[in-house]
């Protein structure tokens, strides 16, 4: 990936960000709730009309839409996402405090997912249409069909209520907190990735170079372990990157079930209490992180795969 490509990607990211920020701002602008009233309600006050009118003016809510948006966007650029109405703290501080727990959760569930899906996917591909393949495919089918909020509740029922091995609420701050939420997240992801790994390995097994290596008398295990498997992992790197990003935004359900103190939980409570600054800040943060991760994955992929790295300047004669 040349410098020019990276710059153009960064430029695209900027446009997407402007679009996303505009959209979230528009959403909160047209939403049925009144932010001022909600702000007072969140702090347990019942304001009279006059108070509301004064605060509206103070917060600039009577200005034209574009002016409000512009002011807000400029502040965001300076790193000031405003103050959370419901929690009475700067949005940046709130988000920063929750980022690490969610990151831990996401990475741990990714690790579980990799450990499960790579071996299963490989087995299933190598023994295609054999009993083991059917078993794996059956498991993945169940995995993609089970809603993760139900799976999470069932896990609580089993490990916390019946076996009493783990706490029901995951906010003790210890490693135990991570186990069930991560397993729940990993469950459906593993199913999806096992399918992807299987498809990728099958794709490689069918490539011409496998025939070539066989014709040269290279041993089967060498073809599989040193050629087919490394190659089939290449396209998966992009997918893994995408999932880290979408995991950061997709943990809400699981965080709520396990009362896990992460970003997703914060976002849900922000939405329930119409805490607009917090919602907007959250959406923007997640999109920046998501796009940054994708960019990094794309760039690194281009260094790993020689076909992509060297495509532009081939030496033909």
């Amino acid at each position: 990936m040349s410098k020019k490509d990276i710059l153009s990607r960064l430029f695209q990211m900027l446009i997407v960000l402007v679009g996303i920020s505009f959209l979230t701002f528009l959403l909160t602008y047209i939403s049925p709730g009144d932010p001022v009233r909600n702000m007072y309600l969140a702090n347990g006050m019942m304001p009279d009309e006059q108070q509301v009118a004064i605060t509206r003016e103070e917060m600039g809510l009577n200005d034209p839409f574009l002016e409000q948006y512009g002011r807000w966007a400029l502040n965001c650029l300076r790193g000031d996402f405003g103050k959370s109405y419901s929690l009475n703290k700067p949005v940046v501080d709130l988000l920063a405090a929750r980022l690490l727990p969610t990151l831990k959760l996401a990475l741990f569930s990714m690790a579980i997912m990799l450990v499960v899906s790579i071996p299963l996917g490989i087995l299933s591909a190598v023994y295609k249409d054999k009993p083991i393949d059917y078993i794996v495919r059956g498991l993945t089918f169940f995995g993609v069909s089970i809603p993760n909020f139900w799976a999470g509740l069932l896990l609580i029922l089993l490990f916390c209520v019946q076996l009493k091995l783990l706490p029901v609420v995951s906010s003790s701050g210890t490693f135990k907190d991570l186990i069930l939420p991560a397993v729940t997240l990993a469950l459906s992801m593993s199913a999806k990735y096992t399918r992807q790994v299987r498809a990728a390995v099958l794709d490689e097994l069918n490539s011409d170079y496998v025939i070539g290596a066989k014709a040269r008398g290279v041993a089967g295990w060498r073809i599989l372990w040193l050629n087919v498997l490394p190659n089939s992992m290449l396209p998966l790197i992009t997918l893994f990157g995408l999932s880290i990003g979408s995991l950061l935004g997709g943990t809400s359900v699981v965080e709520v079930i396990f009362s896990y103190p992460g970003l997703g939980n914060l976002a849900v409570s922000a939405i329930t209490s119409y805490d607009y600054n917090l919602i907007q800040g959250y959406v923007l943060w997640i999109s920046v992180i998501y796009m940054a991760v994708n960019l990094i994955v794309d760039i690194s992929y281009k260094f790993i795969d020689p076909r992509v790295r060297l495509r532009t300047d081939s030496v033909r004669r």
Binding site: G245, S246, G249, V268, V283, I286, M291
Partner: peptide
């Protein structure tokens, strides 16, 4: 280029 569920929830 954006995690869908986040926006859907919002």
């Amino acid at each position: 280029s954006f995690p869908g569920l986040v926006l859907a929830i919002a």
